[in-house]
């Protein structure tokens, strides 16, 4: 059962179907959303675009849910899907090793070259000890996503999931459709 949902694209933000007003577009939109709706988590600026997008989408989702107690819990999973895995971070890291004359591999860039880091960022922020997972499919397919989330309730402790699509190909091109789903 879908309780809440958030949609973010470079030009549009919707929370439970209602448009959220904003002035910026693209990567600047994510920063604007951070400043207007979160503001107290400077680690945001260290994140790659995928983590920024997933983090903002989850924050908007949880603000609507209302309970922001940040109490440790194990009954909530974070299961995300996309097409491009960590392509933006991969491309950024590659740029630090491409030129043999300027070969300075960046650990801060490398750590984001895994798509599941965003699930970790959301868990750290909210103290979720529950399941975290990241699945890549080559096209957005709501049926595959919903079936997979339904299956995830086979875990003996999971009763709700932050789940859905969080995808970006570069800093300016991204899309998130994130759900708060309860066991059904």
């Amino acid at each position: 059962m879908i309780k809440h949902q958030v949609f973010i694209s470079p030009n549009e933000v919707k929370v439970d179907g209602k448009a959220l007003t904003h002035n910026e577009k693209g990567s600047a939109l994510l920063t604007e959303l951070y400043r207007n709706h979160i503001g107290d988590y400077p680690k945001f600026f260290k994140m790659d675009t995928l983590s920024k997008l997933g983090f903002i989408a989850s924050e908007l989702l949880l603000n609507i849910e209302g309970d922001r107690s940040f109490e440790p819990r194990e009954d909530r999973a974070v299961i995300l899907f996309n097409r491009n895995a960590s392509l933006q971070a991969d491309t950024h890291y590659q740029s630090t090793i491409q030129d043999p004359g300027s070969f300075f591999p960046s650990p801060a860039a490398f750590v984001y070259t895994l798509p599941n880091i965003v699930t970790g960022e959301i868990s750290i922020r909210n103290k979720y000890f529950g399941e975290t997972s990241f699945i890549v499919i080559d096209d957005y397919d709501e049926q595959i996503i919903m079936k997979n989330l339904k299956n995830a309730f086979q875990d003996p402790m999971t009763t709700s999931i932050i789940g859905g699509w969080v995808d970006c190909s570069d800093e300016e091109h991204f899309e998130a459709t994130l759900f708060l789903v309860y066991k059904f």
Binding site: R83, N84, L87, P115, N116, V136, D138, I144
Partner: peptide, 27 residues
């Protein structure tokens, strides 16, 4: 082919399997 889903599709196409392959990328 750098996309994991596209890499997986090469595999299912090779075997003639009709389903969309699932790629788990959880570090």
């Amino acid at each position: 082919r750098v996309r994991l889903g596209m890499m997986a599709r090469q595999v299912t196409k090779h075997f003639g399997n009709p389903n969309e392959p699932i790629v788990v990328s959880n570090a």
